[in-house]
Amino acid sequence: MTLQKVRQKQGRFTPFLFLSPAILFFCCFIFFPLLGAFGYSLITWDFFTRPKFVGLDNYGKLFKDPIALEAIKNTFIFTLASIITHVGLGLILAVAVNRKIPKFFSYIFRTAIFFPFLLSWAAASLIWNFGLDPTFGVVDYYAGKLGFPQATLLSSTWALPTLIMIDLWKTLGFCFIVILAGIQTIPSDINEAARVDGASGWRLFWNITLPLCTPALFFVAVTAFIGAFQIFEPMYIMTRGGPDNATLSVVQYLHLTAFRNFEIGYGAVIAVAIFFIVLTATLVQFRFAKRWVYEG
């Protein structure tokens, strides 16, 4: 074997060598746990007694479980509302901030919107718990003064919309920054050329800004879906899934099933269901992306 052939052979493995840390991480923390979840979904086990193989029985249980279906419904409502509000409001705010306003106000605005994103969900939930307190909560008090419903976390009608609003406050900053970055990458000469051609502000937005920032909007939509579908903390801390399971999210139900009811097999089924729902939704988003995302 010549030296050149040896080097060629070695060269084939070089990329894998560089990728190995990421591959190792992926296998340890994503791929093998995923396989484990599939495995667990085929057994019944309560942590302490001997596991029993039950095949696909746990999967059949999922479709007959009204609480699971309610949790999935709640999570879809939360997720869709999250995508619509984050993409819509994020875009409006990004366009507003991108306009020629004094830098000082631009910084203040950006910081104010992004700041809640830096808080942990636990801290944000506790802050809102106090704000919405029906006895002395500032937010609850002024909501009443303005004619909005009060004690919303206790209402099976208003609890989920309240959590959607809190989620918007908490995570809008991320979407806003991504969309703003997307808008700021649009070459200014395109806008200038359009202006020379007599395009109005609305025309600029509709025909230039919006199409050219669709990659950012797409990214935000995909990440918002993945993040929102796995929502857990605000429900767990603020409402415990109540009242009457009105805010029970599917991940919270997984937690209840596996770690409070000790049904590990059934909990794994819910985990697998979440995986497939998120995977399917993401693939669908990518499939339809070709129709509306600008690819340059």
Partner: peptide
Amino acid sequence: TKGNLTQRAIEDVWGQIIAGNI
């Protein structure tokens, strides 16, 4: 034995009763 689950259910429904939701 399932006291953790019964407690959650009892507290959730009672909470709705005293809040006037039901």
